[in-house]
Design a protein around this nucleic acid. Sequence first.
DNA 1: TCAGATCTTCTACAGGATGTAGAAGATCCC
DNA 2: GGGATCTTCTACATCCTGTAGAAGATCTGA
Lengths: 127, 127
Amino acid sequence: MQRTLDTMASLGELERSVMDLLWSAPEAATANDLRDRLAQNGQEAKDLAVTTVLTVLSRLEKKGLVERERGTRPHRYHAVSTREDHTARLMHEALGTAPDREAVLARFIGSVTEAEAATLRRLLARG
Amino acid sequence: MQRTLDTMASLGELERSVMDLLWSAPEAATANDLRDRLAQNGQEAKDLAVTTVLTVLSRLEKKGLVERERGTRPHRYHAVSTREDHTARLMHEALGTAPDREAVLARFIGSVTEAEAATLRRLLARG
DNA sequence: TCAGATCTTCTACAGGATGTAGAAGATCCC
DNA sequence: GGGATCTTCTACATCCTGTAGAAGATCTGA
């Protein structure tokens, strides 16, 4: 069963952890960097083989979420887009799956906090 | 690997097709109804065994997306929530995965059509 | 330059999710 | 009661993800 574009966006747990690390650090990281940081992640600390991290990075690369610099010797990896862009795109993809987008937006607005609503008003005002 | 709540929301192709049928018809449907409708779906017409449809329905039930009326003899199935509610919830879940929700909303607004932006303004105005 | 260290790629396997459906058990109607 | 209809159980294939060893590639100090 082929995964369509949108379902591809759903990441596994480890894939997600790696993306979180790449997203929260500004610098491109090596597989070893990531391995070490994963080993020190408070609650869900994972002591993984570097090859495991490399495999995950390759898969993320194939999914288009990560890019690697092949020039440097320990390859360096970085997220292709910011977490915010990625998340916004996911939201947009979800929105796109429904025929009546306005109705979806109506429900969505209803489920948003007042603070978020205020943010939205502000963003939509100067637009 | 346990699926978290949000990843559970990502459906397979057939599961998605069945949900689409349940969402677009007002009446609760039997497995046979659905089987027949799947067999007449223009492009991606699928000629499936009824048991296949039943299996999928059971799985959707387990995921909380579908409810079945056990009273009637051919059980009747219907979606638990509307497509719009479901989609809005997905969007909200996506939003929840990012620490900086406001930044996500900003990107999201940027990717929305003018018509949708207008809808949002209207919805947010009377709030 | 060469050998040990470091790094990457290949290959592999396990477990869960999904598509698919037959066999067998349950229920209904004539 | 018995054939027809319906549901549940069981099963298998494939894909995705987690996980990592083996083997190949590359680098670096002596």
